[in-house]
Amino acid sequence: MGYFLFFLLAALTVGAVLGMIISKNQAYNAIFLILAFACMGGLFALLEAPFIAVVQIIIYAGAIMVLFIFVVMMINVRSGIPAEKKKWTIYLSLVIAVVLIIELILSIKGAFTLPVSTAIIKAGPTDLGRLLFTKYLYHFEITSILIIAALVGAIVLVKKKEKE
């Protein structure tokens, strides 16, 4: 059952991301992305990390995607890349795709031979919080510097110009 669910969700994720790249309509792109995020949430749940799964769905599929869709509605860009320019990129991406498929097949072959890990990883909110404030305290604190940097950078780039 676990295997079946994993491959179903994984295939759905990859399919959704593919759909997002192929589809030309921005609104569809956004909706495909929601599907991909939701499936990834399911993958996290399979890994016995319910908290991260829920957070993934609430934050990415919920909040961030709403922002995306708002931006898409407001900006309304239609034009893509002209067709004649695309030709060599198609060939290039074909080559990369073949390499990726080979890699994927190899890794799937490897996955069946690997012993399934029996250790149960606990990743509920309590465990996550404990880890954040013990083992990953420094990482956690650095992230706050990162957020300040992002905030200051974003504000300074968009704020109103002062009058001379």
Binding site: H139, I142, I145, L146, A149, V156, L157
Partner: peptide, 19 residues
């Protein structure tokens, strides 16, 4: 941690480039 530090450096750099 090196990655997080790199992100702090990079995000400041992006903003600085566009000042």
């Amino acid at each position: 941690i090196i990655f997080l530090g790199l992100e702090v450096l990079s995000i400041c750099s992006y903003a600085l480039a566009g000042l």
